[in-house]
Amino acid sequence: MVVASGNVFAKEMAIRKRIASIYNKRVDDFESLRDFNDYLEEVEDMIVNLVEGIDVPAIESRIAQYQRENAEQIMIAQARKAEEYAAALAASKGQLPQTAVDLSSGSSQAGPTGVAQGQYAPAIAAQPRPMGMGQQPLPLGHGSDMLGLEYEDEETMKIRAEKAAKAGGFSLEMSKKRALEEAFASIWI
């Protein structure tokens, strides 16, 4: 039974990946949030129907028609996603992005790499940052020492404890009430 559910999950993920590469519009591509939400709902309905095997030929023909009609928009969105990924990768390595493309005008300029901006350049295998033996990268944050341990003042610790209690379904008022009830319940007259 577990194997069957794993196959369904793998099938659904493959369908979602395929559909997301075709139906890749963003909020900015729509005039209103309502239009974008309708678009997302239509895409999700198609995904569910494909996973369940409902009216597959009709959905496949709709997808093919959408691809033909919106081929340029699909390629622009994929290029934009690749550019954003490259910029994020460069930023994570502490470098400035090598290319920038104005997708609305389609203009591109050659960057320092010699490749015209917006053009595909083969990716170089990412090299991990050099680390000491057994070391883990330290998270960036306010208040961590060299060992990665956080230090906080008393008020910050109190706020964190209150948030944790609320996340667990408890409130400060509830715990005070319970303490008082238990204290008075133990008094015998």
Score class of each variant (00 low, 15 high):
Asp55Gly: 05
Gln117Thr: 14
Ile187Gly: 02
Glu12Pro: 03
Ala82Gln: 09
Glu182Val: 13
Glu154His: 09
Ser175His: 11
Lys81Asn: 10
Asp35Ile: 01
Ser32Ala: 02
Gln127Thr: 13
Ile63Lys: 00
Met13Phe: 09
Met131Gly: 03
Val48His: 12
Gln135Ala: 14
Ile189Cys: 08
Thr113Gly: 04
Ala91Leu: 12
Ala185Tyr: 11
Pro128Val: 08
Glu152Cys: 15
Ala86His: 04
Lys17Gln: 11
Ala10Tyr: 07
Gln136Pro: 02
Ala64Ser: 10
Val115Gly: 00
Leu96Ala: 15
Glu12Ala: 15
Ile54Leu: 10
Gly111Asn: 10
Arg34Ile: 07
Ala4Tyr: 11
Asp35Ser: 05
Pro97Cys: 03
Arg129Tyr: 06
Leu180Ser: 09
Asp38Trp: 03
Glu181Trp: 09
Gln135Val: 08
Gly114Ile: 04
Lys176Pro: 02
Asn7Arg: 14
Val43His: 00
Ala125Trp: 05
Met1His: 09
Phe9Glu: 14
Asp35Thr: 02
Gly148Tyr: 00
Tyr120Gly: 05
Gln78Phe: 03
Lys81Tyr: 06
Gln78Tyr: 03
Ile74Ser: 01
Gln95Ser: 08
Met131Arg: 14
Asn70Gly: 01
Met174Thr: 10
Lys158Gly: 07
Asp28Ala: 15
Gln109Cys: 09
Thr156Ala: 14
Val3Tyr: 06
Val51Asp: 00
Val48Cys: 11
Leu147Lys: 09
Gly118Cys: 01
Ile22Ala: 01
Val8Asn: 14
Gln136Arg: 12
Glu60Ser: 04
Glu152Ile: 15
